[in-house]
Amino acid sequence: MAAQYCLRMPGNVYCGEGALSQLRGILSGYQKAAVFTDKGIEKAGLLDEPVKYMKEAGVDTVILDELPSEPTYAQAQKIIDEFKASGADVIVGIGGGSVLDIAKLSSVAASEEYGVKELLDEPLLGKKKTDTILIPTTAGTGSEATPNSIVAVPEKELKVGIVNPAMIADYVILDGSMIKKLPLPIAAATGIDAMAHAVECYTSNKANPVSNLFAGEAVKLIFHNIEEACLNPEAAAAKNNMLLAAFYAGAAITSSGTTAVHALSYPLGGKYHIAHGISNAILLMPVMRFNKDACLEELSQIYDMTELGERSIRAGDKADKVLRRMEEIIANLKVPVTLEQFHVEEKDLDSLVEAGMQVTRLLDNNKKKVTPQDARKIYREIISGRRKEDD
């Protein structure tokens, strides 16, 4: 467990049914809001209520809706340039992880002195210039709680995290009405992303009492709510619980950090454009099985706190039951567990291993050292769909 640790949190967090109405008061004193979103959010009608509250607050709006789902750093820069030209004095991010990531990045990158490309190498160059209000429309990424922004770097066939404490949001609104109509595939993938965040943070080398408080609560909420929240459109309480769980898991990231699941998933997004939540869902079980012997204590604690059964059984049995519960969730939500449908083949192993091993920021958090041979075995398992020994 880390000897020193720090928790960073958004300045104000509004939660629960009807929390969206707080937008009126939050926007008091601002002149013009830049609304970061995407076409899918608009088409689903999820902008209607927030824009209504913006009008009631007397704030002009400009809609920036050309955000792709997995943006490159150049695509992020294009949106940031549009934001700079808009003259807006507050940012409102309404969307999933990519939307919120670029909204946060815009708050520190709207400068003539540097751009996103420079922040890839020196993230702390960025200084907060504009307040941010983040409203997630998925219960999973936790982007609303973190100081991270993930962008693809095509020349490296990799996703890269830009991490800067200045990107922590000023305001967050968690309202279950914003995820009520979320399609099952997106709800499931993002929900499992939140599960990965929570479990990885709890088993990270940087885990500490503060991160464990949030990661542990996130795991409990997810284990007991994720299926109902995803499968039942009317499950308002479960959806609000999942929004809270995703936020808690994001808060845990700020104090601890994700591990090899996320590290090895970055090349899948960067090269093959596989959605972040799906990449993590595919890698979650192979990596956690690899990590099990190094994380018996932590997995045993997760078993106890989630009340999965009799506490008097051995730690190894508790760890197995936690892993089985995670597998059960993935199976119940019908999320892919192999790369078969994404046209990734054995011939791609070398490039995947090379790219994955570059993500040392996260690999260093993993309790069990991941060698290139280990990474190859894990990638081979998700390509073939079978567990087998490396050559």
Rank of each mutant, 00 (worst) to 15 (best):
Ile222Asp: 10
Leu243Arg: 00
Pro10Tyr: 05
Glu122Asn: 15
Met195Pro: 08
Leu184Asp: 00
Lys321Leu: 15
Lys271Asn: 12
Asn232Trp: 01
Glu234Gln: 14
Val151Gly: 04
Pro154Leu: 05
Ser351Tyr: 03
Leu308Val: 01
Leu333Met: 09
Ile79Gln: 14
Glu82Arg: 11
Val62Gly: 08
Arg387Gln: 13
Val335Met: 14
Leu299His: 08
Ala188Ile: 00
Arg387Asp: 13
Asn205Asp: 09
Gly45His: 12
Glu200Val: 11
Asp60Ser: 14
His224Gly: 05
Leu125Cys: 06
Lys321Tyr: 14
Gly45Asn: 11
Tyr53Phe: 15
His197Arg: 05
Glu155Ser: 13
Tyr248Phe: 14
Lys159Glu: 07
Leu7Asn: 03
Gln341Ala: 13
Gly356Val: 02
Arg289Phe: 10
Glu298Val: 05
Ile63Gln: 07
Ser107Ile: 02
Ala238Asn: 07
Lys43Ile: 05
Lys239Met: 00
Arg387Gly: 13
Gly316Thr: 07
Lys104Phe: 03
Gly250Cys: 02
Glu389Trp: 12
Leu283Met: 15
Lys347Asn: 13
Lys78Met: 12
Tyr272Gln: 04
Asp350Phe: 05
Lys206Thr: 11
Glu112Ser: 13
Leu244Phe: 13
Pro154Trp: 04
His262Gly: 08
Ile222Trp: 06
Leu47Pro: 13
Ala294Gln: 09
Gly176Asp: 01
Val172Leu: 01
Leu64Ser: 09
Tyr272Cys: 01
Ile192Pro: 09
Lys84Pro: 01
Val35Met: 07
Val210Asp: 06
Ala218Ser: 14
Ile383Ser: 13
Lys117Asp: 14
Leu20Met: 12
Ile79Gly: 06
Val172Cys: 03
Glu345Phe: 12
Leu268Ser: 02
Lys220Ile: 11
Asn205Val: 09
Tyr379Gln: 05
Leu184Trp: 04
Ser86Trp: 04
Lys43Gln: 13
Gly250Ala: 04
Glu113Gly: 06
Val90Asn: 11
Leu352Phe: 00
Gln341Ser: 15
Glu307His: 12
Ala194Glu: 09
Leu174Ile: 10
Thr254His: 01
Pro154Thr: 06
Asn366Lys: 03
Val153Gln: 09
Ser300Pro: 05
Arg376Phe: 09
Ile168Glu: 01
Met167Cys: 04
Ile192His: 10
Leu20His: 06
Thr130Cys: 10
Leu125Pro: 05
Tyr248Pro: 03
Thr371Trp: 06
Leu184Tyr: 06
Pro209Thr: 08
Phe342Ile: 07
Val199Ile: 15
Thr338Val: 10
Asp317His: 10
Leu264Glu: 02
Glu227Tyr: 01
Tyr5Ile: 02
Asp293Asn: 14
Met357Asn: 04
Gln77Ala: 11
Pro286Phe: 09
Asn208Pro: 00
Glu70His: 12
Gly270Phe: 05
Ala19Tyr: 02
Lys159Phe: 03
Gly270Ser: 07
Ile313Cys: 11
Phe214Tyr: 15
Thr141Val: 02
Glu157Thr: 08
Ala246Thr: 04
Leu182Arg: 02
Ser312Thr: 14
Cys6Pro: 00
Gly126Pro: 04
Ala145Trp: 03
Thr141Ile: 04
Gly29Lys: 04
Asn291Asp: 12
